[in-house]
C-alpha cells in the first residue's frame, strides 16, 4: 500500500541504539575486568553463587507448577461459561494484575507477618503463631499470587478454542474425567500451557522485589544479586553483567523449550 519503508527508520535506529547496543554493552562488561581487559573471571566467579542460582530456579519452577495446577481448572471452567459471563470473569482475573505489584506484594507482607492477620485468625482457634514471612515458602506464595493471572489467561484462551463436542465425544466413548483431562484437554491446550509457563517462569526467576519483601535477607535470588552489583553495596558492574548474561541464557533456554509449542501465530505478528 504505502510504499514508505523509510518510515520504519527512526524505530529501527531507536531499537538498535537502546535495545541492542545496551545488551552488547552487558556482554562487553561481562567479559572484561574493571580496567577493561578481557577476562573470564566474572563468569567463573558466578560459580560461588551457584546456591543462589539454584534457589532461584527451584523456587521459580515450584511457583510455575503451582500456578499451572491452580490455573488449569480455572481456564477450563471459564471457557465453558456463557459468553457474557466469560467476559466478566476475564475482567475479574485481570483486575488484580492491573494493581502495581509492589502494592500486591506489600499486602502479603501484612498478612504473613508474625502478628499479622493470618496468625491472629489462627490464634483464635488456638493455632500458631507460625513463622511465615521471611521464608522461601512466602517467596513462592508471592510469585504465585503475582503471576497467577498470567497463567490463567493464556490457558483460558487456548481452551476457548476446544470445541465442546470433542469433550462430549470423549465422554460418549467412555472416557472418565481423568482421561478427558489427560487425553483431550491437556494436549489441546499445549500452546496455552507453553505461553503460561514462560509468562510465569521468566518474571519469577528474575524477580528481586518479591524475595526482598517476603523472603527477608536469607532468600536471595538472582535478581537480588544483580541488583546488588548495580545499585547495592557490592557495586561491581562486571560481575553484575556476567550474572545478567547467565540469567538471559537461562531465560532463552526456557523459551526454546516452550516456543516449540507456542510458535503458532507468532510469525504473522508483524
Amino acid at each position: 500500500m504505502l510504499q514508505k519503508k523509510s518510515l520504519a527508520g527512526p524505530y529501527l535506529v531507536w531499537m538498535v541504539a537502546f535495545i541492542i547496543a545496551p545488551l552488547l554493552i552487558v556482554g562487553y562488561f561481562a567479559l572484561t575486568d574493571a580496567a577493561g581487559n578481557f577476562t573470564l573471571d566474572n563468569l567463573t566467579t558466578i560459580g560461588r553463587y551457584s546456591t543462589v542460582f539454584a534457589r532461584s530456579l527451584i523456587l521459580a519452577a515450584i511457583a510455575t507448577v503451582i500456578c499451572l495446577v491452580l490455573a488449569f481448572p480455572v481456564g477450563y471452567f471459564l471457557s465453558r461459561l456463557r459468553a457474557s459471563k466469560q467476559h466478566i470473569m476475564q475482567m475479574l482475573v485481570m483486575l488484580p494484575m492491573w494493581m502495581n505489584f509492589l502494592l500486591r506484594t506489600y499486602a502479603w507482607m501484612s498478612l504473613l507477618e508474625k502478628n499479622g492477620i493470618i496468625n491472629r485468625v489462627l490464634g483464635l482457634i488456638g493455632l500458631g503463631p507460625f513463622d511465615m514471612i521471611n521464608t522461601s515458602g512466602a517467596v513462592v506464595l508471592g510469585m504465585v499470587y503475582n503471576y497467577l493471572p498470567y497463567m490463567i489467561l493464556p490457558l483460558y484462551t487456548a481452551m476457548t478454542k476446544i470445541d465442546h463436542s470433542i469433550i462430549e465425544a470423549a465422554q460418549d466413548l467412555g472416557a472418565g474425567m481423568g482421561k478427558i483431562v489427560t487425553r483431550v484437554l491437556i494436549p489441546m491446550s499445549v500452546p496455552g500451557i507453553a505461553t503460561g509457563i514462560t509468562m510465569v517462569f521468566v518474571p519469577a526467576v528474575s524477580t528481586f522485589i518479591i524475595s526482598r519483601m517476603l523472603g527477608g535477607g536469607s532468600n536471595l535470588l538472582i535478581g537480588d544479586l544483580i541488583e546488588l552489583q548495580f545499585l547495592g553495596n557490592s557495586y561491581n558492574y562486571n560481575l553484575g553483567s556476567a550474572m545478567s548474561l547467565v540469567l538471559m541464557v537461562i531465560v532463552l533456554l526456557c523459551m526454546s523449550f516452550t516456543t516449540d509449542f507456542g510458535e503458532e501465530g507468532v510469525e504473522g505478528v508483524v
Binding site: I20, F29, I226, M248
Partner: peptide
C-alpha cells in the same frame, strides 16, 4: 527485534540501559 524487550526479563532491560 521487537520481541527482545518483551521477552527479556525487565531487570536485564533496566540494567543494560543503565550501563549504556
Amino acid at each position: 527485534l521487537s520481541y527482545v524487550p518483551i521477552v527479556n526479563p525487565e531487570i536485564i532491560t533496566g540494567v543494560s540501559l543503565m550501563l549504556l
